[in-house]
């Protein structure tokens, strides 16, 4: 069911997604300003009775209406570039989560004293429990600690896939033969959902991504228990 809350971007669970949310608002302010100005000018020009047959050039006006849009573009470009470079920052602390795309499921590896590896398949609709999300639940969730950097390294075993977690502001193509890394900082404990975001074949829609963020203590216990 659609709700009003879905009109906006997804709730941010990482600093980068918060930044992107702010940048979205920043850009929307500019867009609304331009839209309002153009709309008002359009209406005024259409309905006013004053016309000038003699005005052929207006140097100062042209200078102003060149400089102002240039400044507005700069106002948009600088925060955008800052964000672009922020998104590219790589973490060197915390943990590594390796995700490999397959047709059509994700497999994960978490390196610890021994590497923990498992496949993550979507739970079919017939097996869902009450309250589960259709087409989003998986049998094995990837687990990461919160309040800590996670370096997600993604690749594919067959065709292009894309590992995505909207609430973390993370989306990266999984390319066969290539390792793509991205940094993710989960702020809050919780279960976060994403979907494969690169058309990868018949069951592209049925290979969701679920990440469970737990405390570092629980994370280490989980890994030690799995060994």
């Amino acid at each position: 069911m659609s709700t009003w809350g879905q009109l906006n971007l997804i709730d941010a669970a990482s600093p980068l997604q918060s930044e992107m949310f702010l940048f979205h608002d920043h850009a929307i302010v500019l867009l609304l300003g331009i839209f309002s100005l153009v709309a008002i000018l359009g209406v005024k020009l259409t309905f006013n009775k004053f016309t000038s047959h003699t005005m052929l050039e207006a140097q100062s006006l042209e200078t102003i209406w060149t400089i102002i849009p240039a400044l507005l573009l700069l106002w948009l470009a600088l925060p955008s570039l800052r964000l672009l470079y922020l998104l590219d920052e790589q973490s060197n602390s915390g943990i590594v989560l390796k995700s490999t795309g397959h047709q059509w499921y994700w497999s994960y590896e978490i390196p610890f004293t021994q590497s923990l590896s498992f496949d993550s398949y979507m739970v079919p609709e017939s097996d869902l429990n009450h309250g589960d999300f259709r087409l989003l639940e998986v049998d094995n969730r990837a687990t990461v600690p919160f309040q800590m950097e996670t370096s997600v390294i993604t690749t594919s075993a067959d065709v292009l896939h894309a590992w995505t977690l909207p609430s973390m502001g993370v989306k990266m193509d999984a390319v066969p033969g290539r390792l793509n890394s991205m940094s993710m900082f989960v702020e809050k404990p919780g279960v976060y959902y994403g979907q494969c975001s690169e058309i990868c074949g018949a069951n592209h829609s049925f290979m969701p991504i679920v990440v469970e963020a737990v405390s570092l203590k629980d994370f280490v216990n989980y890994l030690e228990g799995a060994e």
């Binding site: 973490s91 602390s93 915390g94 390196p111 950097e149 390294i153 390792l179 793509n180 570092l216 203590k217």
Partner: peptide, 28 residues
């Protein structure tokens, strides 16, 4: 102190200036 102990158990490869990019294929 417990948190610091736990942190010692996990590890992540440090930044390598030869591989500063998103593409880590060559690093591996």
């Amino acid at each position: 102190a417990e948190y610091e102990e736990l942190k010692k158990k996990i590890w992540c490869p440090p930044f390598d200036a030869r591989f500063p990019n998103q593409n880590q294929t060559r690093n591996c």
